[in-house]
Design a binder for these strands. Structure first.
Lengths: 190, 190
DNA sequence: CCAGAATCGGAGTGATCGCTCCGATAAGTC
DNA sequence: GACTTATCGGAGCGATCACTCCGATTCTGG
């Protein structure tokens, strides 16, 4: 669905260099916010992108807008990945694979869990895409008997957010074992 | 153990007004950081405490020191609560009650989950107190067969941190159902 | 190739933050 | 009550941040 829009919704198409710089800024913003956290300065993003500060602020009139653009991009990628798994032959494995993958991303990318937590509240457009794809993944896994039927999408989102945030601090085996506890809780039993 | 030290470790005892102000600052800091997050300014804390900024900085030479003091105070209270439950007649219920209670606190108090995440890494003195009490709670619940034996303290800490952070966004029924999923995963089965 | 317009770059602005410094003030001692 | 001394209060400092403004630069249609 809603691709990570390369150009804004304006009427006129962007000039060639403008579009090039816009993409450079977005890419640099992802890297910087992942590495240094969302408190990194806009100037740092501009330096990483190899452009002036003015350029950053013309494309994204506010730091919040820049952050939201990064979030939207991330959520779109996650939504695509979820959609790609909806046609897997084993729905249960698809669900747990996706969960594990998202948590793995969050462990190294700082801005991802922030994006996820916002997805439940804000960013309606592309947050919905993720939600819908995840809902499909969940209900297929439930129909296959791999996930208990009495959990809903909101709970799964909450668990995903919590696991992603915890993964920023818990590494290696600890993270895997904690995730397995959650998975055992999600599996159908009794 | 290690009580939330009302005075610092200096040789001289504090003057009466100094100790009074120190407590006012600590109390105000807890409230402000819970309500506005840890990015709230030191001046806001001073205003809430009804003292000047200089007073805040004499007692806590750095904002980080002030935050750490709040964390230590919180962790001590949590450790006490855990210790109080170690002698309960039903070790399983004690463990899950404690888990639920901590997550409930975190849902309303912003600084708590931050304190928890730091407890695993930093703040060695009072973080150990919590860890030890939680370890007792866990092993007693495991001996009673209420919690599976193949989870360790680090995993439980990670789950506690993740659930607490998620609880800041997930409210009411969603939080309860997500927590129950984790609990089912923690219970012994098979 | 050229003119006009869109875009760029970064010095500068105002606000805020953590923190310092020192005259005013209040506590403790006799 | 007076003297000493620890403590208080808040104006001020330097650094940083998000954001603006405008001359220089680059693109694009003709």
């Amino acid at each position: 669905m809603t691709r990570p829009q390369p150009q804004p919704r304006t009427g006129r198409p962007l000039r060639a260099d403008a579009l090039r710089n816009r993409l450079k800024v977005l890419e640099a913003a992802e890297e910087v916010f992942d590495a240094r956290g969302t408190t990194a300065s806009t100037e740092e993003v501009a330096r990483a992108a190899g452009v002036g500060i003015g350029t950053v602020f013309r494309h994204f009139p506010t730091k919040e807008a820049l952050l939201e653009a990064v979030y939207v991009s991330r959520l779109c990628k996650l939504a695509e990945e979820a959609e790609a798994l909806t046609s897997a032959e084993d729905p249960g494995a698809a669900f747990f694979t996706y969960f594990t993958r998202v948590v793995g991303y969050a462990a190294t990318k700082n801005a991802l869990s922030a994006a996820l937590t916002e997805a439940g509240v804000d960013v309606p457009e592309s947050g919905q895409g993720l939600k819908q794809a995840l809902a499909t993944l969940l209900s297929r896994a439930q129909d296959a008997g791999a996930v208990r039927g009495d959990v809903g999408l909101p709970e799964v989102m909450a668990l995903l957010v919590g696991a992603s945030q915890a993964a920023e601090r818990a590494h290696g085996e600890v993270r895997d074992r904690a995730l397995n506890v959650v998975f055992d809780g999600l599996r159908a039993h009794r």
